[in-house]
Design a protein around this nucleic acid. Sequence first.
DNA 1: CTCCCGATAT
DNA 2: ATATCAGGAG
Length: 217
Amino acid sequence: MPAEEAQTRVYALLERLRAAYPKATTELQWSNPFTLLVVTVLSAQTTDKKVNEISPELFRRYPTAEALAQAQPEELEPLLRPLGYFRQKARTLVKLARQLVEQHHGEVPRSMESLTALPGVGRKTAAIVLGTAFGLQEGIAVDTHVSRVAQRLGLSTHQAPEKIEQDLMALIPREAWTWFGHALVLHGRYVCLARRPRCSRCVIADLCPRIGVTAAA
DNA sequence: CTCCCGATAT
DNA sequence: ATATCAGGAG
């Protein structure tokens, strides 16, 4: 498909998504940049719902980077167990907090470079924190949902998250990057499901190569 | 590339 | 039984 034609279809997509998910944001519970950073790190390969179930107790015990930096990883493990990867996440979280204290005065840094230099923080997590906590459009968070939906919509043919992000950034107006990421996550989570997409109640099915001119499932 | 890992939907 | 869940490090 010519780039120009793809761009025209993207504007139609954005309009539909804007109507369907006008205020799309994360479903993770957070109260400040530090808690958002932590819950986003914890959300790897688990559901937001599970993270929200344990995060209140986590932040009751460790409300700040300073408090978390003084913890031993082992004492976090029982709390993190239901999330999976719990030993790794416990170690990562304490290392992360210690670096925040030692290198950033206990504050969450506001640049992509500083954030991705932190343990447990890749571009996906950094883009969420920058966009959602600070309102900075520095990238598009490509997770499993964004990756799947973008590919099904034909917005990218790549598999590598960095490549998908580049394709999306070229197609989406910068001021919409953060919202667009959240919208695609919600669409992927509730409509464009991994195993069995619910195309019959998809607001962009007619713009999707999978359905398009064909009948909706 | 492999490893980390429990809970849930299908 | 198996795929999937807002990934990142070694």
